[in-house]
Write a protein that binds this DNA or RNA. Structure first.
Lengths: 337, 337
DNA sequence: AAGAGAAATTCAAACGTTTCAATTTCGAAA
DNA sequence: TTTCGAAATTGAAACGTTTGAATTTCTCTT
């Protein structure tokens, strides 16, 4: 491997000169700088970011730890974050926790060892002592999409409670009065808040949400499909489904149709996130929409901004993005029997 | 930051002992090892992977460079690769090229500077001198999904030509004789091969594929939708659409339906990749299926295996995964007028 | 021709590890 | 007690940079 020393030897310069020249320091004579640069080019020199990071105490990498890379919602977040990170010379280290706080902890430790400069985190929000420890470090962390419950922490996302409210309100406006809630893990803060939003809307109509109306599961099409089939087999009386995300909602619609019922004629379904698939003709899912790519971008920007202003007492930042109801064909007025 | 030296001072040991102890070297007395480890724990020591990488000349990171993180096909590849990488102690650095060889080159340079140990690459296959240079390096590279045209290079993917053949053959078997091909960039090797597969199948029926039957575009729903609308407005005579991937195919179906026609009654559509959305009820896309997560896993395994066997003359490896036609409801027999 | 001042370059330490040869310590055999 | 070998520990260099202080080399002035 070609190093700075090799170039120095070749050019009969000290290696500090070479380093300075390569970094465009004007203390080095213009002509020498050029000589160094072209020699470096010629010899195929590539600077060693590790060595650089060691002495400069920053790696220009950030970690993005999230529950499920393949979930289109998170994939969009990554896309936005990667764009900004790359534009500012940073690389993204991606870690998939598969909704496990154990994996979340392992990944946190791993990226910290790697001396990444900051962390974007979609936490699965289970109690996690490692995360506590990390937050007490000097290392900047931005929570994305799902906020950190207690502590003051940087956050970019939406007002999930409000989103949940919007979703439930829409169904109520259509005349629905009996609901089931499908999917999700309740330890996730974003999900708890969505649920609270549902409850608030229903509360305005004096409708309680019983434990038995709620069917937890994974954030996947398969899980949504299985849940709704179980629900239908239980003869639960309901006219509308509140799904915690679009994948679940799509699964629910699959299940309903496979059971010989129609959406929305027999049952209305509303999702959450507005992933691309929600808009496909044939799916046409009513859902709560937000700009996921911007969310990723803003999160990365918030983190990187934090990295630039070193050692100043950083104050906590919060960015809450708009969201809105997108009405498609999966919801309709309740059928009066 | 707590370093090895701090522990050494605290315990009145040399820092080589501490290093050895921390790495579980048996030359250090059991008891000392334990003492060091618990002290490290107590002081909140985290080893510095940068420093380690510098001296060991390996970073235990691999780069994954690909065209579009948010495309579900690629997202699945990442998921599989991340799983294996993490399991073996490696981190994945993700880079999005947005189908631009310029970005591809920039990312290649960046990850090499970062001293990643190897590269997983879904190349956009445009001529790329930087890539040439990288391949001449000692650095292991595995091409994923889309092979490197000329050179002998590690590859994990499918036989795209065969896949293309299967797709076209299916439509021919259904009686279709007039086709349009929608989407994709032809510089991508995988796409060229799919196209060749189409041609071979049509060739068996003596049907030529004219330039005018082919509508290039992006790998996106939107692009597919726009293309088909243009095609329909041109009054092109055809009964079936060969789409280069599922997103395009879904867009095509959207466009067809929005134009008041039916799939497959009026026009049959076949995709490629079998992304999850293809199976959603309401989409039901006939497509060519392959195991994308396995593809990601195998690629990572191939790369990591290469990293372990250092300095042996590595021979080029190829893994070709099976693929199969999945018939759903987007294709049907041609309607005789 | 000397000296001042600026410009250009170099020195040397530092970043936090690993590693292997060298040294010290220890316990037991002679 | 001495000696020997094994066990345990240490020293020192190396990895490839950056950086501020120190030094050298110029270029003018006078």
């Amino acid at each position: 491997m070609v190093t700075i020393k090799d170039i120095a030897r070749e050019l009969d310069l000290s290696y500090s000169s070479v380093s300075l020249a390569l970094n465009g320091d004007t203390r080095i004579k213009e002509q020498t700088r050029e000589r160094v640069k072209s020699k470096a080019e010629e010899m195929g020199y590539r600077r060693n970011a590790q060595a650089r990071a060691l002495v400069m105490n920053k790696s220009e990498m950030v970690g993005f730890i999230l529950p499920d890379i393949a979930n289109p919602f998170f994939a969009s977040l990554i896309l936005g974050a990667e764009e900004i990170a790359f534009r500012r010379g940073y690389s993204l280290v991606i870690c998939n926790t598969n909704w496990s706080s154990k994996l979340e902890a392992m990944h946190l430790n791993l990226v910290i060892e790697r001396k990444i400069d900051g962390i974007l985190l979609v936490s699965c929000n289970e109690p996690n002592p490692t995360l506590e420890k990390v937050l007490s470090l000097e290392l900047p962390v931005v929570f994305v999409s799902s906020p950190y419950p207690d502590a003051e922490a940087n956050f970019v996302g939406t007002d999930s409670e409000h989103g949940g409210y919007l979703a439930a309100k829409h169904l109520l406006d259509l005349g629905h009065r009996k609901f089931v809630v499908v999917g999700g893990r309740f330890n996730s803060e974003a999900i708890s808040q969505r649920f609270k939003g549902y409850e608030r809307a229903l509360g305005e109509y004096g409708i309680p949400l019983e434990e038995s109306d709620v069917y937890p599961g994974d954030f996947s099409v398969e899980s949504g499909c299985n849940s709704i089939k179980r629900i239908l087999s239980e003869q639960h009386a309901f006219s509308a489904v509140l799904a915690f995300d679009d994948l679940i909602a799509i699964g629910v619609m699959n299940g309903i149709r496979e059971s010989g019922l129609r959406v929305p004629d027999d049952i209305s379904v509303i999702g959450f996130d507005n992933i691309e698939a929600a808009s496909f003709s044939g799916i046409d899912l009513t859902t709560i929409s937000m700009d996921k790519i911007s969310m990723g971008r803003l999160a990365a920007e918030m983190l990187l901004d934090d990295l630039y202003c070193t050692d100043k007492p950083r104050d906590r930042k919060r960015t809450v993005l708009d969201q809105e109801l997108v009405v498609r064909k999966s919801t309709g007025p309740v059928k009066r029997p």
